[in-house]
Design a protein around this nucleic acid. Structure first.
Lengths: 201, 201
DNA sequence: GTCTATACCTTGATAGAC
DNA sequence: GTCTATCAAGGTATAGAC
């Protein structure tokens, strides 16, 4: 099965590239290094990816597509979910997903600048769609009076930054377990958007 | 004045490198490009920086040192400042400083992986010191009962991630002014660490 | 301090045998 | 589909004249 063998090499190349790009950066990694990791010659990679740029783009599109699809598959992503439950579910989903895909996450926002314009714009659009999912939840919550979020879109970007940050310092085997950290974040986000009892909003 | 001329070239090289590294990444920028921006030959740069790595390291150490010194110069950084005022001051300081040094900020945490081990550890130590400043404020506030921050160090890292995120999407001339965004963040941070009336902490 | 010239290496990508 | 060989370009860093 020539096709199977080919897909295997392509897949292994994607995995190797993912790891190397995350560790050293796109520009600092050569096609030879990737090929070496897979165990083939450098030229062989060009049977699967037209250029190095295409390889990077494939990784990033794949990650953002997976991210969006995974959230859509969550029950709480339905438009009729209660805002507070939806927000908590989003936080837990985001942290879990990002912790399980450290390399993909790292690349997808460190290597934005390595993308050529058309690829860059595609990724930015996908990222915007993901932010919009959270903004919608905040918007519905604010309308229902259970959230304080005067600027849902800004708040969404800020919160995603907060949540994504966890991947930059979380280390397995640290003092706190993944579950404990998740609780801290759920709590922090809930507080960040809660209406104050005495205040106007 | 040979010395003066030399310092000028070194300084211009630092500025050019700062901009180019931030825009394209350390690995993607060549010494030739930097020299071209300054208007000298590539070889001339080696009179001022032993290696390209040294140039990057100088930029990052300089930025982190400036950041720490600038915070120490703020009145609210004193250990006897009231926690709530200190926290608000920290948020405003951090946002202003980071917005005024977009390139430095970008590099200082995108190019950590481009640093060789000894340089890397120096920067990590400086970063840890900055985080510790915020953690102290949270700690004092928690002790005084005005903050809910069960894990001051974790909360500090999370909040810094939240605040730093603003540089990744803030664009001058956007719908919201810099001052408006600052208020949103001050408010969000205050909420994130406030004790809940009914709850235990 | 800067120049030109250059040594030496690695890069992304291609060609043609197998 | 992978190999080896190869190309042209560009990388960091150095040497010696001015």
């Amino acid at each position: 099965m020539a096709t199977t063998k080919g897909e295997t090499t392509a897949q292994r190349a994607r995995e190797a590239a993912l790891h190397l790009f995350a560790r050293h950066g796109y520009a600092a990694v050569s096609m030879r290094e990737i090929a070496g990791e897979v165990g083939v010659g450098a030229g062989a990679l060009y049977n699967h990816f037209a250029t190095k740029q295409d390889l990077l783009n494939e990784l990033m599109v794949g990650h953002m597509t997976d991210l969006l699809a995974a959230w859509e598959a969550e029950p709480a992503s339905q438009e009729d979910a209660a805002p507070r439950e939806a927000l908590e579910a989003f936080v837990r989903f985001h942290i879990k997903f990002h912790r399980s895909k450290t390399d993909e996450v790292f690349i997808s926002y460190m290597e934005l600048r390595s993308l050529e314009p058309p690829n860059f714009h595609r990724i930015e659009k996908l990222r915007g769609m993901y932010e919009a999912r959270l903004a919608e939840i905040l918007d519905r919550g604010a309308a229902a009076g259970v959230f304080h979020a005067p600027e849902p879109r800004i708040t969404a970007m800020a919160l995603i930054g907060l949540l994504t940050g966890v991947t930059s310092w979380y280390r397995q085997g640290g003092r706190l377990s993944a579950a404990e950290i998740e609780e801290l974040y759920v709590d922090m986000v809930a507080r960040a958007v809660q209406p104050l009892p005495g205040a106007g909003g």
